[in-house]
Nucleic acid binder design. Structure first.
Length: 435
DNA sequence: TCTGGGGTCCTAGGACCC
DNA sequence: TCTGGGGTCCTAGGACCC
């Protein structure tokens, strides 16, 4: 059942059995092209954090057979040969474009679930003509933010994902595929052409196991016996199968559910061996997880720290991991960092070239219902300090206000050798955009 | 010269206790 | 004294997603 905002509709509840999945094509690459019209027609790739792997490719880059998630250094010669425009990821820019895009999309559905930075589900009214609605969405996004997109429409989220996938790959649909426009025979032909692993929720390992049961494509998965599935697989997969049959099991989540774990981790720009540098990075991650925690109104009762050497190196591997239940659940950056630093000192072994560090929080609880311990109540001035910290960082950008410990050394910062300017987010980097 | 992402949830299996 | 079943809790690693 879908719950609507007050006053939106006469009925209090309507059964949503029609979903649209809208997503930006090659989103990061499209964002970069937005401010560089000279790159029209040129292959573009965007690299992950630390310039590690390829995370987005323009259509031209895909045509060069550059695979997704390939380490950049392996394809660097190919990129040089074909004059590929290479960008480090610029999440400040993509996040800003994403917010504008989601803002425009909200009015095209009864409800909206922002699923990731470049895609959202919309609940559609039964009466709306799907293809036409989808084309208006595409035009609006292109005109409003300059991002090309595709739309998949179907009676379940899993099928909407699949329809979107097909709309992107089959030009005949002109970017919009409404599953219900297809005859049963056409639906089956398309499902047959999709590998089981292309279905949302079926990854590489599950696809391998399904293969052993003789289930290789989406049609075979749709028609698989519930008995076999229950015997060999999980309830999660049986839900996916129901969704493929057009039975909606996954609701639209218009209010982001609170996370159960929060993690911040990052590879270093160069290998790090000394404790002070690790300590600075852990302070940074502690501040990030605390900020995320406060943003969802939770407190954490468990904190963990991980450090590790590069798994791709032969010799001297080490993975350190430590966690600790907090004496009192907290959302305070300084408290959390204090325990994170204690954990780090416990797991640190000198002499290893570390490649990555991270901090995570678990056993999260709602802040409002936590009984404060009589003898160690969170001081009101600290709460006030955190609120101010968040406000400043929200309004003036991440990193405006930091822990002193984060500033001790910068040696762990990631590589970003191909970063575009903050066209929309940094005044100093403004430039004229096209109309 | 050397290079290999980040985040979330789930679950099997171990530790511990009765 | 020793064994064994069963339940709970915890966590590292697996699987999935983008």
């Amino acid at each position: 059942m879908a719950h609507l905002g007050c006053g939106q509709r006469q009925r209090e509840e309507i059964p949503v059995s029609r979903f649209a999945l809208v997503d930006g094509n090659n989103f990061y690459a499209s964002c970069e092209r937005l401010f560089r019209p000279d790159l029209e027609g040129r292959p573009i790739i965007v690299l992950s954090n630390n310039d590690g792997c390829v995370v987005a490719r323009s259509a031209e880059a895909k045509a060069l057979d550059i695979p997704g998630f390939v380490p950049y250094f392996q394809i660097r010669p190919l990129c040089r040969r074909h004059h590929v425009a290479v960008f480090s990821s610029n999440y400040a820019l993509y996040g800003d474009i994403s917010r504008r895009m989601m803002g425009l999309l909200a009015r095209f559905g009864l409800q909206q679930e922002v699923y990731s930075i470049d895609e959202c589900f919309l609940a559609l009214d039964e009466g709306w003509p799907g293809r036409q609605h989808g084309q208006i969405i595409r035009q609006t996004l292109l005109q409003g933010v300059g991002i090309p997109s595709c739309v998949g429409i179907a009676p379940s989220k899993t099928l909407a994902k699949l329809a979107n996938h097909l709309a992107k790959r089959m030009p005949r649909w002109e970017g919009v595929l409404d599953w219900q426009d297809l005859t049963e025979r056409e639906q089956e032909r398309l499902l047959e052409r999709c590998g089981a692993g292309q279905v949302w929720g079926v990854g590489r390992r599950l696809a391998e196991r399904l293969d052993k049961q003789g289930i290789r494509n989406a049609l075979q998965l749709r028609d698989a016996s519930p008995d076999t599935l229950r015997r060999h697989f999980s309830v999660v997969l049986s839900r996916t199968v129901a969704e493929l049959n057009g039975v909606s099991c996954l609701e639209l989540e218009d209010v982001a559910a609170g996370k159960q774990q929060i993690l911040s981790s990052r590879s270093f720009g160069q290998l790090v061996s000394d404790l002070p540098t690790l300590s600075a990075s852990v302070a940074h991650h502690a501040a990030r997880v605390a900020e995320k925690l406060r943003a969802q109104g939770s407190v954490a009762a468990l904190i963990g720290v991980t450090i590790r050497t590069s798994p791709f190196r032969e010799a001297g591997q080490y993975r350190g991991h430590g966690c600790l239940p907090l004496p009192q659940a907290s959302d305070d950056t300084l408290t959390l960092n204090h325990f994170a630093q204690t954990l780090l000192r416990g797991i640190y072994r000198p002499g290893f070239p570390y490649q990555k560090a991270g901090v995570y929080l678990a056993d999260l609880r709602e802040k409002a219902v936590i009984q404060q311990d009589l003898f160690c109540q969170a001081k009101p001035e600290r709460q006030q300090l955190m609120a101010t910290l968040d406000k400043l960082n929200r309004e003036h950008g991440h990193g405006t206000l930091k822990l002193g410990a984060e500033l001790l050394t910068d040696d762990w910062r990631m590589r970003r050798e191909h970063c575009s300017p903050g066209y929309t987010t940094a005044f100093g980097q403004l430039r004229e955009t096209r109309d």
